Amino acid sequence: MIDYCTQKFFGQKYDKDGAIASEGNICESWLDCLLQDEYYFIDPPKTTGRE
Protein backbone atom coordinates (compact mmCIF):
# COMPACT_ATOMS: atom_id res chain seq x y z
CA MET A 1 0.00 0.00 0.00
CA ILE A 2 2.81 2.40 0.86
CA ASP A 3 4.66 1.69 -2.39
CA TYR A 4 1.43 2.24 -4.34
CA CYS A 5 0.89 5.64 -2.71
CA THR A 6 4.54 6.60 -3.20
CA GLN A 7 4.24 5.80 -6.89
CA LYS A 8 0.91 7.55 -7.32
CA PHE A 9 1.62 10.74 -5.37
CA PHE A 10 5.40 11.13 -5.63
CA GLY A 11 6.34 9.36 -8.88
CA GLN A 12 8.87 7.09 -7.13
CA LYS A 13 8.88 3.28 -6.96
CA TYR A 14 9.18 3.28 -3.17
CA ASP A 15 10.01 5.55 -0.23
CA LYS A 16 13.77 4.95 0.01
CA ASP A 17 14.87 4.98 3.63
CA GLY A 18 11.47 6.45 4.59
CA ALA A 19 12.57 9.89 3.36
CA ILE A 20 9.07 10.96 2.27
CA ALA A 21 7.38 9.55 5.37
CA SER A 22 9.84 11.33 7.67
CA GLU A 23 8.63 14.68 6.32
CA GLY A 24 5.04 14.06 7.42
CA ASN A 25 3.11 14.73 10.60
CA ILE A 26 0.98 12.28 12.56
CA CYS A 27 -2.69 13.15 12.97
CA GLU A 28 -3.32 11.49 16.33
CA SER A 29 -7.13 11.53 16.05
CA TRP A 30 -7.06 9.84 12.63
CA LEU A 31 -4.46 7.31 13.80
CA ASP A 32 -6.61 6.46 16.83
CA CYS A 33 -9.58 5.89 14.52
CA LEU A 34 -7.59 3.69 12.12
CA LEU A 35 -6.22 1.58 14.96
CA GLN A 36 -9.76 0.66 15.97
CA ASP A 37 -10.21 -1.26 12.70
CA GLU A 38 -11.01 -4.96 13.21
CA TYR A 39 -7.93 -5.90 11.16
CA TYR A 40 -5.69 -5.15 14.14
CA PHE A 41 -7.64 -7.52 16.37
CA ILE A 42 -7.43 -10.53 14.02
CA ASP A 43 -4.83 -13.14 14.91
CA PRO A 44 -2.06 -13.77 12.34
CA PRO A 45 -1.56 -14.83 9.67
CA LYS A 46 -3.05 -11.83 7.88
CA THR A 47 -2.07 -9.60 5.00
CA THR A 48 -2.73 -6.15 3.61
CA GLY A 49 -1.95 -7.39 0.09
CA ARG A 50 -4.12 -6.58 -2.90
CA GLU A 51 -5.79 -9.98 -2.78
Score class of each variant (00 low, 15 high):
Met1Trp: 02
Ile2Leu: 11
Ile2Val: 13
Asp3Leu: 04
Asp3Val: 12
Asp3Arg: 15
Tyr4Gly: 08
Cys5Glu: 15
Cys5Asp: 15
Cys5Thr: 14
Thr6Val: 15
Thr6Ser: 11
Gln7Leu: 13
Gln7Asn: 15
Gln7Tyr: 14
Gln7Ser: 15
Lys8Asp: 13
Phe9Leu: 12
Phe10Ala: 13
Gly11Phe: 09
Gln12His: 12
Lys13Cys: 13
Lys13Glu: 14
Lys13Ile: 15
Lys13Val: 15
Tyr14Cys: 09
Tyr14Ser: 08
Asp15Glu: 13
Asp15Trp: 08
Asp15His: 09
Lys16Pro: 14
Lys16Cys: 11
Asp17Ser: 09
Asp17Glu: 14
Gly18Met: 04
Ala19Asn: 11
Ala19Val: 15
Ala21Val: 12
Ala21Asn: 04
Ser22Met: 05
Ser22Leu: 06
Glu23Phe: 09
Glu23His: 04
Gly24Ile: 03
Cys27Arg: 02
Cys27Lys: 04
Glu28Arg: 04
Ser29Cys: 05
Ser29Gln: 05
Trp30Val: 12
Trp30His: 05
Leu31Phe: 10
Leu31Cys: 11
Asp32Ala: 10
Cys33Val: 13
Cys33Met: 12
Leu34Asp: 10
Leu35Pro: 00
Leu35Ser: 05
Asp37Phe: 08
Asp37Leu: 07
Glu38Ile: 04
Glu38Asn: 02
Tyr39Asp: 00
Tyr40Gly: 08
Phe41Trp: 00
Phe41His: 02
Phe41Pro: 00
Ile42Ala: 00
Ile42Ser: 00
Asp43Val: 03
Pro44Arg: 01
Pro44His: 00
Lys46Arg: 03
Lys46Asp: 08
Lys46Ile: 08
Thr47His: 03
Thr47Glu: 00
Thr48Gln: 08
Arg50Glu: 06
Arg50Asp: 03
Arg50Thr: 05
Glu51Arg: 03
Glu51Pro: 03
